[in-house]
């Protein structure tokens, strides 16, 4: 896989191959997003910075050195974008949302939350066990990017109930995934 990533990134660099770059993005985006989440405490912000980083990587693809790790290169760019973000956001520091974010960062967990691949494998198994209505809710919000209010409209429920349902469902999925991981460890 490492060789594939290098080959794809090299093809993107040498030939402007968009499909090859898409493959690199496909294999690396979760790592970048998860890494940035731990630095920002905000999924949307992490995604925004990840997008900026990947767009920058495409624009600066000629700076990639073949034979090195595209993952490490992309992470370096992502961290650089993050520092840039920190420099820009001073004026918003007193906003309540920013206060929540800073408080979360102050209490960020010290260690990584297990192996990403194991977590995703367990989560995938748990997703296969939920009902169609729950799956639809997950897809509307997390895949299609609808607000919980818009999802509530489609599902025919009230917006507060929709967010509560989503929250409960996420909690169930987390507990299910943790249980699966624990069982596998035994």
């Amino acid at each position: 896989m490492a060789d594939d990533l290098d080959l794809w990134m090299t093809a993107a660099r040498d030939h402007g191959d968009q499909d090859a770059f898409a493959m690199v993005v496909d294999k690396c985006h979760h790592l970048i997003r998860a890494t940035l989440l731990r630095e920002t405490a905000e999924p949307d912000l992490a995604d925004e910075i990840a997008q900026e980083a990947l767009a920058r990587a495409w624009a600066k693809r000629d700076q990639y050195r073949p034979g090195t790790s595209p993952r490490a290169w992309l992470l370096t760019i992502a961290r650089s974008q993050l520092m840039e973000f920190h420099r820009r956001q001073d004026r918003d520091r007193r906003h309540l949302r920013e206060l929540v974010r800073q408080e979360l960062l102050r209490q960020a967990p010290s260690d990584a939350d297990g192996d990403q691949q194991v977590r995703l494998t367990a989560l995938r198994a748990c997703l296969s066990e939920i009902g169609e209505e729950h799956r639809q809710l997950i897809e509307l919000v997390h895949s299609q990017g609808l607000t919980s209010e818009a999802a509530a409209d489609i599902l025919g429920i009230k917006p507060p109930a929709c967010r509560q349902r989503l929250s409960r469902l996420q909690r169930i999925l987390r507990e299910c995934a943790q249980k699966r991981i624990a069982e596998a460890e035994r």
């Binding site: 998860a34 999924p43 979360l104 960020a108 939350d113 989560l123 997390h142 996420q170 909690r171 999925l173």
Partner: peptide
Amino acid sequence: WQTLGMVTDLRAEVAQGF
């Protein structure tokens, strides 16, 4: 933090296929 991590995992999981 667990909830935020789950949101990112779900987004990565249900919207994959590049």
